[in-house]
Every structure is written in C-alpha cells, then in structure tokens.
Design a protein around this nucleic acid. Structure first.
Lengths: 252, 252
DNA sequence: AATGCATTTTTGTGATCACAAATCCCACGA
DNA sequence: TCGTGGGATTTGTGATCACAAAAATGCATT
C-alpha cells in the first residue's frame, strides 16, 4: 500500500492535516515550480476550504523548509542551489547513516523481510523502465530501513529532509540510475542489517546518498542553480475537487 | 546581549512570531511542567492576544516536537524518558559534530574570536557560581560554533533539537558541571577550529554532547522517566501583561 | 461511599470579516 | 523607450463567531 506519510499521524482527519498532506504530495511530486509564489487564497480555492487550515498547513511547511517566506511575507517554493544540495547531502549522510546503523542493531526478521521485498520491487520497476514506481519503491525501501531503527525523532527529521530534496530526485532518472551500482549497494546493506553489522550498514547508506546527491549537485548551472525536473502534468485546467485536488504548475 | 533566537527571523514583528518566541523561551527555561496540558485559550489569555496567532505558534512547536498532541487533540508538554534522551544524544552528536567539522573548515578569524570570547564568559559565570548565566553562555558558545559552519539548514535542525533537550539541561547543574572537564574540551575544540582540523573539532564536540546527555539519561528512574529541573518561579499569581508575559508553572 | 449517567462547561476547529501592507497596473512625463 | 507615481487590487494578519467533540461536573442510585 502506497503510504507516503510515515509518522504516526494516525487518525488525524482534520482539514489542516489533509491540506498538509496535499501540499506535501504536490511538492514531492514536483507539481509546483521552484520559485513559484503560492498564496493562501490560491491553495484554499483549489482545495475548496477556508484560509484557516491552509494557513496552518503552509506555516508548518515553511517551518520544515518545504516552503520559504520572503521578508515581505509571501510564500514561495524554494529554489535549489548547489550549495543547498551539498548541505543536505552531508546532513542526510549523517542522519540516514545513523538510522541504518541503528537498524542493523534493532531490525526484526520481519522488518528485514520487508526491506528485502522493497529492494526486489525496485529491481522490477527498473527493469520495466517505470521511473515513477521506481522512485516510489526507492522511498519505501529507505523508510523501511529507517523505521526499523525504531527512533521516532530521527524518523521525523529524515522525513523533513526528504521533503526538501524530493522534487529534485527526479533528476536522477534516467542517466544516473542506469549507470548506478545501486542494487549491489542495497544488497550489501541488507546483508549488513541481517548480520547486525552497524558500521557496514552505515557506510553503505552514506555511499548511496553521497553518490546520488553529488550527481544532482553536478547538474547546477554556472550560477549554482539547479533546474527542477518538470513533471508531465502542465497545462490542463482542473476545477477544485475537494479531497484529491491537484495543483497547477504555473510558472508565474 | 541575550538573544535566544538564532535563525534569521530578522524583523518578523508578527504576533505569531512573538507568541512563538515567548513559548519557546518558557519551554527552554522550564516554566512549563512536563506532562502539563497547555490550552490555546490559556496561552492567549496570558499573552493578551486572540487564538489565531497562538494556534499557529503552538502548531509549529508541535511540529518541532517541543509540544506534543494527544490523539484527543489536546496539547501537552512532552515527558522526557531515558530512551528519548539517548536518541537525542545520538542525533545531536551527528549533527553538532558535523557542524563543528564544517566550522573548522569555514570559520573566519573574527568568528573564532567570538567563540573564544564565549568560552571565557562560561568560565567567568562558573567561577561566580551563576548557573543561569553559565547555561546561557554555554548556549552562546555552541551556537557561535554552529553559526561559523555557515550551513543554514543544519543550524535550523540543531535549534530544533536544543528546543527539545533545553528544559532538561538544568539537570547538569551543579553536580555534573563541577566534575566536568568541559573547559579543557572547549579549549581543544577552539584550537582545532583555528588549525582547520575538522576531525578533531568533530570529536571534541561529540564527546561533549555524549558526556552531558549520557549523564542526564542516567538520572532516569526505574520506569525510564526523567524529572525536569523545577525552576524557582512557582506559585505567584500574575496577570496577563502584553509582551513579556510569564507563564505559570501549574502541575494540573 | 462508590459508581453510572446526564448535563454543563471547556476546548479545538474551521469560516468569515476588517484592516494594513505589499503588489500590481496603467497613465503620464522625461 | 523607459522609468515613475499614484490609485486599485491582492494578500497576509489577527479577531471573532459558531459548532462539535471532549472533559468536567453534578446527581441519583445502589
């Protein structure tokens, strides 16, 4: 089942939570153009709710770094730069490396089975050339490892970091992926988890993140800016449908 | 000057920001009892504002882990446990160690001078037996190092972690402090920063955090719970004064 | 005195309104 | 052609209201 949220938000049915989830989904799947201004009233209109839950959801995303706020109090999708990618790379290597190490010490047999299953699904999607499923499964694989670490605060921090890098992971496809030694690394990671070898698990995780984000950093132009991966759903007009509303990709 | 906020919130004069700052200050100085229920209307009453800015400030603090929310939608101050302290210890060692390493590569001469100054002020406060100033200066010392790393996202993450451990750092006084080798460690850290020795800077920072938080974890009772350091300001009734309002310490 | 139940009060949620600051837009002049 | 100024519009902010869920309270019964 394709759950995107991983924290224990459990049964929060509040509108605010739904708005938060919608915006999060729209951000990670790249339905907002970086630099795009996103107004409260626009989001409220698209989702068919009032300003109140939108404000709270968007403020939270600002606090998490998924949106940023100009001094002149307007909310924008952050632009990605080489420096920011490199900063996120180093932070993620630390935290996700730590999570992998903890997972090696704490993972149960069934958790390891789940991780192994996700790894196989990556291969399947990749052999089919299905990039979207591939990315989804990569996410599931990683978070299966992090969940096995059993550290809730750590998990929440990592989710926040994925929210910031998410829109740019499309850039890994297809060039980086095809030349990648990802499957072998994941295999070594799984074996380390099973053997309880924390140091190896950490090293494999760090290597995976280093290679991917270093590649993305290399895509920066001469000003250090990184263009986002443009999704396919531009143009089409949609009317505000309550829950599963979709955002336009408008470049201003 | 005793600034507590460290991020570039610059000139955000919004009520929401003021409420956020007030609550943050109240939390870090331990004016709320862990487990205490904190209602929106109570905070709004104490600070003399409407619910709107209070809601947004408190939701942000919930997202940051400084408050937690029951499934029955009521906001409480989180209880600290041994497991949580140990998790925070390991995360902080990674991130603050990384920041120290980056600072060793990036700090300017004037930044190092500022760090050295803060270290001296710790000694002064400690010799006077002034615990409150001591803690404040320790905070300034650490964040002077982290600021020198020049990594804004990393800085923001570290601030969030300090917000969670903050109320419990009082527990280090006076026993841990007197038996501590802190000053010598800080001296070695400063020398590593000056020499551009990232590995040593990281190691010293990691050791500092490991020792402090391991000590706090050792204070847990048989159930794994850790009692907060109770501040001195209990009891007295106060009326809502607009900006510098103080919160009661009410234990329910 | 303890317990079960109904009523009252408290409390979070979402919508709406008023207002000021920021932004936009277009005519006007150099 | 390119600013430039000022009025109209947009947009974030904070207050207030209505409502439903949750918690507290009171009361009767055993």
């Amino acid at each position: 089942m394709p759950r995107t949220a991983t924290t224990l938000d459990a049964a929060d049915t509040s509108l605010r939570q739904q708005v938060y989830a919608s915006l999060r989904e729209a951000l990670t799947s790249g339905r907002f153009a970086p630099g795009q201004k996103v107004t409260f009233r626009y989001v409220a209109g698209v989702l068919g709710v009032s300003l109140t839950p939108v404000r709270e959801a968007m403020r939270r995303l600002v606090a998490e770094g998924a949106f940023e706020m100009n001094p002149n109090r307007s909310v924008r999708v952050p632009l990605m730069t080489r420096d920011k990618v490199l900063e996120l790379r180093d932070i993620r290597m630390e935290l996700e490396g730590l999570a992998a190490a903890k997972a090696a010490l704490a993972a149960t047999r069934s958790q390891i089975a789940g991780i192994r299953h996700a790894a196989r699904e990556i291969i399947v999607a990749r052999n089919r050339g299905d990039g979207a499923t591939d990315r989804q499964k990569v996410r599931e694989f990683h978070f299966a490892v992090y969940a096995a670490a059993g550290q809730p605060t750590l998990l929440r921090l990592i989710e926040g970091l994925w929210l910031q890098t998410g829109p740019y992971m499309n850039l890994l496809y297809p060039d980086f992926i095809s030349s990648s030694r990802g499957p072998a690394g994941r295999q070594r990671l799984i074996e380390a988890l099973q053997a309880g070898d924390a140091a190896t698990a950490r090293r494999e995780m760090e290597n995976d993140i280093r290679r991917a984000l270093s590649y993305v950093a290399g895509l920066a132009d001469e000003n250090g800016n990184i263009a986002p991966a443009i999704p396919v759903t531009a143009g089409k007009r949609r009317r505000p449908s309550a829950s599963a509303a979709v955002f336009e990709l408008q470049v201003n």
